[in-house]
Design a protein around this nucleic acid. Structure first.
Length: 420
RNA sequence: GCGGGCGUCGCCAAGAGGUUAAGGCAGUGGCUUGUGGCGCCACUAUUCGGGGGUUCGAGUCCCCUCGCUCGCCCCA
């Protein structure tokens, strides 16, 4: 029988890795708690139309990366490729906006059918923030600040915040016209990939990695110049707010978000230590999405952090010693059926009192059990052999003090001593 | 979807066509039938992801296939 393997692009997080994840999750939770942001949990599975409508049919994510299938009721279902559409759907469905603006966070697995590479899996995990019902430029800055501080809290260096404004939908429509016209005029000089995208998604050509295309683009009309005065002013106010928060940023006029719902502020936080997939956090404003999904016109801003990438960085930045597996306070050694019978409840009682206890279940020779007790780093060993069992006592041994005298104590006395 | 690299024990890893597949870690047993951390001894891959081929002979060369990985695309 051949052993089965996990699906391509999915990974098992082994016990050596989970402490890093727990750390990152704990830091994020605490950051959200202090900022008064509540958690929302939505299903992993949604009706396909949610993403088609929310993210945009023309995007790569929707066009070729979704896990979509028909369920037994012939409904087209999709494993969520991102979190924002679901959060917005839930907020509309439950009328949360009637109670006022919402400050929400979410986390969990997302699914995209792509070729795996460093920092990219088919099942990956995001933590995200959504501010719904906030139009003020300060809300953009606050959302960014929360992400920035979260990353700082984890001790990550080498991060850069890139910022751009995509303008209003009117601005983009106008600019798109100008850009397409210009691109058509230079069609022959573009790489084949970009030529294709003139028709499908011309704005994305701006962040093409092709050097020749980039050089050519220097002469193209800019998005910044196409922004209406109000959009321009709004962008400046976001920058002012960030400056007041002393969060450094770089304007990247070529930064374009891949999902259709973004407008005005777009940003990415990248790391120089991640290889090709350098974006740790990406987000922006999406004032049109709530309305587009059938809700009341609602301004909104949000972001998502890639957990795999974050953990990669956190792991590199952290002291490995701080992430050792939890060390038990007490290791219980027993040999012989009577002794084993006593060891089991002793371990349980010690745990009920708050101690971390490992019970040796192997019935191996004492020498073996001691070896394990020592290796796991426990401070104390409780030893029960046949003699102790018949007397109803337990030997308490200080594993960290070779000269120490072993004590023969009743189970009660032993627990009392450990708690003292 | 398209490229590059790699695939030897649970983990790390030697091995560059010649015949018994090093070594380290971990594991198991023992030295020590009840007392650990050190040490010593023993055991642990008829087999090199899988399948074909070349050769007197292949883990080492060729082909196919699967998998992993990095990159393009895309994105967090």
């Amino acid at each position: 029988m051949e052993p089965l393997q996990s699906l391509r692009g999915t990974v098992d997080l082994l016990p050596a890795q989970t402490p890093f994840w727990q750390r990152v999750e704990a830091v994020a939770r605490d950051q959200f708690r202090r900022a008064g942001i509540a958690e929302i949990r939505t299903p992993l599975l949604e009706v396909t139309e949610l993403f088609a409508r929310g993210i945009g049919e023309a995007t790569d994510v929707v066009g070729k990366e979704m896990y979509t299938f028909l369920d037994r009721g012939e409904r087209s279902c999709t494993l969520r490729p991102e979190g924002t559409a679901s959060v917005v759907r839930a907020v509309i469905q439950h009328g949360l906006l009637a109670q006022g603006p919402q400050r929400l966070w979410y986390g969990g697995p997302m699914f995209r059918y792509e070729r795996p590479q460093a920092g990219r899996q088919r099942q990956f995990h995001q933590i995200g923030l959504e501010f719904l019902g906030f139009a003020d430029p300060r809300s953009d800055a606050e959302a960014i600040a929360i992400a920035w501080d979260l990353l700082a809290e984890l001790g990550l260096g080498g991060l850069a915040l890139e910022l751009n404004s995509l303008g209003s939908s009117d601005d983009r429509l106008r600019y798109r016209g100008e850009l397409v016209q210009w691109l058509e005029g230079h069609r022959q000089q573009l790489d084949p990939e970009s030529q294709q995208r003139i028709a499908t998604n011309p704005l994305r050509i701006l962040d093409s990695k092709n050097p020749q295309t980039q050089a050519l683009l220097a002469g193209a009309p800019t998005l910044a110049a196409a922004l209406a005065p109000e959009s321009q002013e709004r962008f400046e106010r976001v920058q002012q707010a960030l400056s007041r928060l002393e969060i450094p940023f770089v304007i990247n006029p070529r930064l374009v978000r891949g999902l259709d719902y973004y407008s005005h502020t777009a940003f990415e936080i990248t790391s120089s230590q991640l290889g090709a997939q350098a974006t740790v956090c990406g987000g922006g404003r999406y004032d049109g999405l709530v309305g587009q999904l059938g809700g009341p016109a609602t301004p909104a801003v949000g972001w998502a952090l890639g957990m795999e990438r974050l953990v990669l960085l956190a792991q590199a930045a952290s002291d490995p010693a701080a992430f050792q597996a939890a060390v038990p306070d007490l290791y219980v050694i027993s040999r012989g059926s009577e002794a084993e019978a006593l060891a089991l409840p002793l371990a349980r009682r010690a745990r009920a009192l708050g101690l971390a206890v490992e019970l040796d279940l192997t019935a191996a020779a004492f020498g073996k059990q001691f070896k394990r007790a020592d290796r796991c780093g426990a401070r104390w060993a409780a030893v029960i052999g046949e003699a102790e069992a018949s007397e109803g006592v337990v030997v308490l041994k200080d594993l960290r003090d070779p000269q120490g005298v072993d004590l023969r104590l009743s189970p009660e006395a032993l627990l009392a001593r450990l708690l003292a």
